[in-house]
């Protein structure tokens, strides 16, 4: 009997233990769920704060001109859809042309940035060569100098090349890795990849280009995706260089066209300008949504190591 009593006790104890374990698990699940809900609530509140300005912009794009400044309420008293329809044709050239122009400049620039900057970054991050730190320092320096003081010498330079009033000053530098930001970004990511990869590939007889193409790039998709997104957004929104280098209104890009709506001293068309600003965000948002998948997909590949 004694044994059975002990067995019983043991059974009870085990049962108890299982129950406690179960409760603990339940509690943890509950905590997890609570934690997730809390996290969502927090993120939703933050989202509202983050989105307020966009709502404001959207609302303003439907408002009559004198309501944009006069009223603090978000909701327009009457919806002026004509801000969109009229805005598209408000300038001497229709926005269709500006969009095509922007697409050309941006498309070429993004390709140029990704190719040339990843080349340079690969050299800086994965290859040993004489003068590496020297050139790296020079590259960093180009990031630091305020753009406005090189504007005029640069303008003179492109003028002498006969490039002013073409897209060449906007596009060619990007194929020559002019934006050190992306080089530095890629360098930081490339350096994180394990060295054994290159060493093994080298032993297998892979050329440096093969290593760059078949190993480094595929493993750096999150970085390349990030660079592509930034590059697209920044070029799409770039204003100063198109302002300086484009003269003919037929060649204007979207941000430049947006500046034609405003006249500090005279008649402005804020409603139409906001409407066109909202539309100008659309391609960027679409691109963002498409390319952020690339960042996500990166997990699978880089998790592999």
């Amino acid at each position: 009997m004694k044994t059975s009593a002990t067995e019983l006790e043991l059974a009870i104890q085990m049962d108890e233990a299982a129950r406690v374990a179960h409760q603990l698990r339940l509690k943890r699940d509950r905590q997890d769920r609570n934690g997730r809900i809390l996290k969502h609530i927090f993120l939703i509140i933050v989202s509202c704060v983050m989105l307020y300005p966009l709502f404001w912009l959207l609302a303003s794009s439907f408002k009559p001109e004198n309501e944009i400044f006069g009223s603090l309420t978000l909701w327009p008293s009457e919806f002026q859809f004509e801000n969109y329809t009229k805005g598209w044709y408000a300038l001497p050239i229709s926005f269709t042309v500006f969009y095509v122009n922007s697409a050309i400049v941006t498309g070429l620039s993004v390709i140029g940035n990704l190719v040339s900057c990843s080349f340079a970054a690969y050299a800086f991050a994965r290859l040993n060569f004489n003068g590496r730190s020297f050139f790296f320092a020079l590259m960093m320096m180009t990031l630091m100098i305020p753009y406005h003081v090189v504007l005029i010498p640069q303008y003179v330079q492109f003028l002498n090349l006969g490039w002013v009033d073409t897209y060449l000053p906007l596009v060619v530098p990007r194929f020559l890795a002019s934006d050190a930001f992306f080089i530095f970004l890629m360098v930081q990511f490339f350096r994180q990849l394990p060295r054994e990869l290159d060493e093994a590939a080298m032993i297998d007889g892979c050329s440096p280009f093969k290593i760059y193409w078949a190993i480094i790039l595929p493993l750096s998709l999150p970085a390349m995706g990030t660079a592509a997104i930034f590059s697209l957004i920044w070029v799409w929104e770039d204003f100063l260089a198109p302002l300086i280098y484009l003269n003919d209104i037929k060649s204007y890009t979207v941000p430049l066209a947006l500046r034609l709506f405003l006249d500090q001293e005279g008649q402005s068309a804020y409603g139409q300008m906001f409407a066109m600003s909202v539309l100008s965000l659309v391609p960027v948002v679409i691109f963002f949504v498409l390319f952020q998948k690339l960042i996500v997909r990166g997990i699978a590949t880089s998790g592999m190591k």
Binding site: F119, L127, F129, M139, M141, T142, V172, P173, L176, S178
Partner: peptide, 27 residues
């Protein structure tokens, strides 16, 4: 030792020495 690296660096080198450096020195 150096050739592959400089090939990869070539676009940047051209850009820096032909386009960027001049205006920087001018300023």
């Amino acid at each position: 030792r150096n050739a592959p690296a400089y090939v990869f660096l070539l676009p940047w080198l051209i850009g820096f020495f032909l386009l960027a450096l001049g205006p920087i020195l001018a300023s």
